[in-house]
Every structure is written in structure tokens, then in C-alpha cells.
């Protein structure tokens, strides 16, 4: 049934996903059987017992105990089996192996933050080594979100008042989408992330230097990428329109007014400060809601963003 899997289910990113799919397919087969039975009987009856005239006489069949027991007990047995099967595989997903790599996840409107045991932080993109169990310990800073990685068939709500957990063990290298599955407002459908599965060496290297792109791309181009992937785009437009924050169009080199302070000239240092310590100077007419990106960006990435903003004329 692999053809069926590839049509209706996303790629399997882990052995656990395979396990869930087996159950999924088993249920499809059972449902298909019952649906064909019901639809088949229905069509046959409609064809065979169509009314021929007003004098049609029908038999008086009020019930049939054997038949009724049969169609109560057979579904009961099937459903009980499915219950245990579903429960068993669920418990696998609940209990993470002890040696798992632990990553803290914070969900907030509308981005995902990850923090590794060594203190490194990333935004909307989490790198994990292939073949190793990874455990996400999650909480939210505002409303309820839900961490959903379809390729791994896992999902867990991210709550503001307690930690929830989820674990997965990727089978091969690749990139998988992370969704927010609990409705959380305007940016809900853009609260996407990436789960990047690297080989062990690549993962080590990434932890030290950032990925391929970060190291080799021209700065402005890298900045454009980061503008999207780090979530700047949800608050800053490029076309002059107002979002949560000021647009980047033509800001560089201009004077900008600051709440409770003298106007400042937008230069490289100001941009850098705005990214790393946004509360230092709040642009007049806006609220100080921009999160700090201190620790979230490597040195080259900060330069890239500055370069990118400079280039938006």
C-alpha cells in the first residue's frame, strides 16, 4: 500500500511515523470495507426493491436478535483492537528515551524560539542530528500554540502556564515543516518553522558556524533571507506600509524620531542597536514590542541584516 501512503500522507520522517501510518492504513482498510458494505447494500436495495406500484406488499420484519447482536459485537471487537493499538503507539510517543538531546521551545505570536543546552538560540529553525532522539520542552509566552511536525506525526499544544513535551527521532537528513496547529490570531498561518535534520558532522559544524548559506552568501542576500526566516517580515514591511513596526523602505540615512528622546540618524550603529537592544530607542508612534535578537543571530547575520536594510531604498 505504499502508493496509498504517498498520496494521502506526508513523507515519513521517523520510525514512529511509520508505526502511526501502519495503523492509519489499517483503519482505512477497515473503513473501506464497511463503507463498501453499506454503500453496496444500499445500492443493491435501491435497485432491487424499487417501488413497482401502490399495491406492493412488504414483509413485517420487526427485528432479528442474532443479526443485531452480530452488528453490535463485531464493531465492538474491531474498535477495541484499534483502541489498544492506538494507545500503545501513543505511549511510545509520550515517553522519550533518557539520553535525548533537550531543546527548549518557546512559542509566541507568531514565532518559534529554540534554545540548545549550550545556550545557543535560533528562531523558526531548529537543527537536529540524524538518528538521535530529540526532546522538545515547550512553553508559550502568550496564548496557546501547538507544535506540529507532520513528517514525524507528532503534535503537542504549547501552553502559557506549564511545560509540555514532545520527542522525535529523525531517520534521515532532510528539511521538514513545523506548523502552529492551535489557532492563535492574525499570524497563525505564518507561524511556520523548519526542522532541519543534519548528519552528525554537519550538525556539529552548524552549531559552531551556522550553515553553508550563513558562511558564503553575499551579505545583502543573506539579509533578505533572514528578514523572512527570522520573522522580521511579520512586523516590518519593505513597501512603506505600516505593520507592527516601521517599514524598512528608505529608512537608512534618514532622521527618525524617538519616543522620549532626541531624533537620531539611522546609521549602521543605530540599526545594530535596534536589532540587539530594541528597547534602547523606541521609534515614535510604535510600541516597544520588538523582541531582542541578542544571542539569536551570529555576527555575520547581524551584519547581513544591517546591509539588507541599508539596501532598501
Amino acid at each position: 500500500m505504499n502508493w496509498l501512503r504517498s498520496i494521502i500522507l506526508p513523507a515519513e520522517g521517523s520510525a514512529y511515523a511509520r508505526q502511526v501510518d501502519d495503523l492509519y492504513i489499517a483503519i482505512i482498510v477497515i473503513c473501506a470495507f464497511f463503507f463498501v458494505l453499506i454503500a453496496g447494500l444500499l445500492s443493491y436495495f435501491v435497485w432491487r426493491y424499487r417501488r413497482r406500484g401502490p399495491d406492493d406488499v412488504t414483509p413485517h420484519i420487526s427485528h432479528n436478535l442474532k443479526l443485531e447482536l452480530l452488528w453490535s459485537i463485531v464493531p465492538l471487537i474491531i474498535l477495541t483492537v484499534l483502541f489498544f493499538w492506538g494507545f500503545n503507539s501513543y505511549m511510545v510517543a509520550r515517553v522519550a528515551p533518557g539520553e535525548a538531546l533537550e531543546i527548549q521551545v518557546t512559542g509566541k505570536k507568531w514565532l518559534w524560539q529554540f534554545e540548545y543546552p549550550d545556550g545557543m538560540r535560533t528562531l523558526n529553525e531548529v537543527h537536529v542530528p540524524v538518528g538521535k532522539a530529540v526532546k522538545f520542552i515547550m512553553s508559550s509566552e502568550d496564548v496557546i500554540h501547538s507544535f506540529y511536525a507532520p513528517s514525524f506525526r507528532v503534535k503537542m499544544d504549547v501552553l502559557p502556564n506549564r511545560y509540555t513535551e514532545l520527542w522525535l527521532q529523525p531517520r534521515e537528513e532532510g528539511v521538514h515543516t513545523l506548523f502552529c496547529a492551535e489557532y492563535c490570531g492574525r499570524g497563525h498561518s505564518d507561524m511556520l518553522g523548519k526542522i532541519v535534520v543534519d548528519s552528525e558532522e554537519k550538525f556539529q559544524e552548524w552549531q559552531a558556524l551556522g550553515d553553508e548559506q550563513t558562511r558564503t552568501m553575499p551579505l545583502a542576500e543573506l539579509g533578505a533571507l533572514l528578514y523572512e526566516s527570522k520573522g522580521c517580515s511579520s512586523c516590518h514591511s519593505l513597501d512603506g506600509s505600516r505593520r507592527e513596526g516601521p517599514s524598512f523602505r528608505g529608512v537608512f540615512g534618514e532622521m527618525t524620531s524617538i519616543t522620549g528622546g532626541p531624533p537620531v540618524k539611522v546609521d549602521e550603529n543605530y540599526l545594530r542597536e535596534s536589532i540587539l537592544d530594541p528597547q534602547a530607542k523606541i521609534v515614535a508612534g510604535f510600541e516597544g514590542i520588538m523582541p531582542t535578537f541578542q544571542g539569536l543571530l551570529r555576527e555575520r547575520e547581524i551584519n547581513a541584516l544591517v546591509e539588507f536594510i541599508k539596501s532598501r531604498k
Binding site: L79, F83, G86, K155
Partner: peptide, 20 residues
Amino acid sequence: IGGLTGIFLGTISVDVHLHD
């Protein structure tokens, strides 16, 4: 169809994938 697809959602591990 509505009832039968409910079986997917009642089955815990499958529901975790399909929920929401």
C-alpha cells in the same frame, strides 16, 4: 463516511497527527 472517519480521530496516536 462521517462516522467511519471518526474512528481515525478516536484512535489516539492517529488523532495526534490529525488533530486540528
